[in-house]
Design a protein around this nucleic acid. Structure first.
Lengths: 353, 353
DNA sequence: TGTTATTAAGTTAACGTTAACATCCTCTCC
DNA sequence: GGAGAGGATGTTAACGTTAACTTAATAACA
């Protein structure tokens, strides 16, 4: 057997030549369209098999001016959140005959752009963007959108007349989480996962602030704490560390909070860890709320009160919206959907009865 | 501004025509090779900008017979393990001018194959496979390897004369985790995460069995428990649930184990949760060891003893091996590397002093 | 002054497909 | 028996690049 010899693969014409038909005839057999006699079809299929023919997707896509492929740019893949999104997108797409390619960009503009470029370079049919927004990246994305590439953004802001967006209602989610803590009698409530300076970008933080304000609770910037260094290297999943450090900082304040709203479940896990280390009981000494309802949340000690966002639905809708845009059905409209979140109350805020 | 009109993008020839040069001249400017006068170069660049020209990667790749792109097939993306792998691969590749596209396949042969096919369809330069092995998928992979596509597999078995492999020493990792428990005096040790019937495929389980045997401990199949149903739908990250259920099952045995080795950290988290629910103290009543040393492991209660595998290194090496194969340097050799794991002892097996 | 490099282009022919059109044959039906 | 309707091919011309070659002008050198 002449295996693994990087011989040049057989082409459509090669196959056609060996059985004495036109390339087009072979093409018709391969793609199952047009008229081909049963006899010829069999001859072709036999030759295809024997010669180990495989069509060249590049040439095909070039000719057809489409790739039946969609690109997804994800920031934090370690988050189960992202997994669910990616899977939902993939399922919806594959049901319609599209492939999904994923690029990871751990929150750096450079990587975002690299991902966009490589998708565009491969003439992908559309792009779903689920990274955190940043100026340079958005600028590039804008140009790409201008050039007519169908784009949908998920879980983030982006304004462009031909870019659809879908997101969970992070504001209300943050509001309700905070409201829940206020309802329990807390009035000194910390926020872990982002500094006060991020309030313009982070809806969850906005919800938190809004709930406090609504209930006449003075906002204290010292209670809002993010990562100490904003180094680009920190991978997304290290948010346990951020939660841990954040909680330590909050606990060292002169008057410490009695409750904490963590930006996401991982951060909450780190916060729980730090609180326990300080000998505090949860929720009696300090109540903790997370966000995302990762599978983990049920299994923390105590189980974590958190806000569930419909990731699967976001993924499905993102895929649908993108396909609609690809097919040209959504020419003149810009769709923006915001989905409800749901507060899941567990024992990290309310002691078991 | 005529934005978002899906006008046909300008081609190289369009640009060339408007400034009255040959397409080849524009190509030379774009790619920065060959001789072009400064004057012409500027004219070209100006036109390129004005016409919003962007080269068609499909055509380029078709002509060049390469895409400078590598595909990675991942099973369980929610595992931080996979994230680290993907990031390391991406970094190593981008340093050499390659893009990385990722496909997710949650452990179904069909999805594996779909991922392979879509990579091959896009004439990707090489593939890194990090999914669990399965018969149909391996068969297809074998054909692809036969056809000369460079392939490297990570963390799994695969035999093909031109496919390199890299993996952590899961056997020794499992052995040492179990040995550690034995050293602590345990002799009734459970395994959670896979049934006894998987012993031929799962190195961690083999390590566990081997350690028991070495110390003359009778193997008890009832102590080895995996997922109840092997439904394909269960996403990878739901292993907390598997750990939880597994532990429950073990605890309901007539004589229950005093220690448990969980197949990975997520499973361990679920196991911890179930043990606590049963009112058991960890590690006094039951000791628990995980695998992977996810960031989570430090933050469980108690912190989790686990086995760390060098994911970053695996990713780097996988990328390097693949690039070597792509460049044709590794024609006649098959490389197989196995990297050491490290046991990280925390309080889930040894009470704090 | 002729020979050789160097620079700056242009020309040609693929890369491997497929859409669109053209051709030829064989039925069927009035 | 002529018109029309498939059915089964073949032919042509792109899709948008770029490798390889050619041409031509200028510069450099002995």
């Amino acid at each position: 057997m002449s295996r693994n010899i990087r011989r040049k693969p057989a082409t459509l014409s090669d196959v056609a030549a060996t059985i004495g038909v036109a390339p087009m005839t072979v093409s018709r057999v391969i793609n199952g369209n047009g008229y081909v006699s049963e006899e010829t079809r069999e001859k072709v299929l036999e030759a295809v098999k024997k010669m180990n023919y495989r069509r060249n997707g590049l040439a095909r896509n070039l000719k057809r001016q489409r790739t039946d492929t969609v690109g997804l740019v994800i920031g934090d893949i370690s988050n189960p959140f992202s997994t669910e999104l990616a899977n939902a997108v993939r399922e919806s797409l594959s049901a319609r005959g599209y492939n999904l390619f994923i690029c990871i960009s751990e929150h750096s503009a450079k990587e975002d752009i690299a991902a966009f470029e490589s998708f565009v370079d491969h003439n992908i049919d559309g792009i779903i963007v689920a990274t955190r927004s940043n100026e340079e990246g958005d600028e590039r994305l804008n140009e790409i959108a201008d050039s007519g590439v169908p784009i949908v953004v998920v879980g983030r802001d982006f304004r462009h007349e031909s870019v659809d967006s879908i997101s969970a209602d992070n504001f209300t989610g943050g509001f309700e989480a905070t409201q829940h803590l206020i309802d329990l009698g807390h009035n000194r409530i910390g926020f872990i996962g982002a500094g006060f300076e991020n309030r313009s970008r982070l809806k969850r933080l906005q919800g938190y602030l809004s709930a406090l304000t609504k209930h006449g609770i003075q906002i204290d910037e010292r209670l809002i704490t993010g990562r100490r260094d904003s180094s680009r290297d920190t991978p997304g999943y290290s948010t346990e560390a951020i939660g841990y450090e954040g909680m330590k900082r909050l606990l060292s304040l002169p008057i410490r909070p009695t409750a904490v709203f963590a930006r996401n479940d991982f951060t909450a896990v780190g916060a729980i860890s730090a609180a326990k280390e300080a000998g505090l009981r949860i929720p009696q000494d300090i109540a903790i709320v997370g966000f995302d309802d990762t599978p983990l949340a049920v299994h923390t000690t105590p189980p974590l009160t958190t806000v569930r966002q419909p990731m699967k639905l976001q993924g499905q809708l993102a895929a649908e919206m993108l396909l609609r845009r690809i097919s040209g059905e959504a020419e003149d409209t810009t769709e923006k959907r915001i989905l409800d979140c749901e507060l899941i109350i567990r024992e990290s805020t309310v002691a078991q009865s």
